[in-house]
Amino acid sequence: MEMAVHDLESGILGIDLSGRMDIIGTQQIDLKFTALTATRKANVLVDLSNVTFMASIGIRTLINNAKAQKLRGGSMVLYRPNPQVEEVLKSTGIQAIIPIAHDIEAARGAFGSG
């Protein structure tokens, strides 16, 4: 897996993930992803549009870091998953605990509600 980081507007931290988020792919980004998303307060927008495959281990990484971020007073929003990845997320109930957005306006709103 690969990961790119960039600052978006007004305090939103953008993290673009790409590749296959199975156990091998997740191990490749896990430490850096945690360092970026869970060690300081931020509104983290995790762009999943280039994630081609999401396994349970990938969901666990998202949840663990969203949980840590919430404890710091920030929040995480999952952005633009493809339909297959979104079905995986929804079948495990993730949308109820980490918002999923498909446009930046919805993402802003989700941060506001978090």
Binding site: I63, K67, I97
Partner: peptide, 12 residues
């Protein structure tokens, strides 16, 4: 899970 706090890693 209904909240981040009660999301466990079991059985997913």
């Amino acid at each position: 899970p209904v909240s981040l706090a009660d999301a466990s890693g079991d059985g997913r």
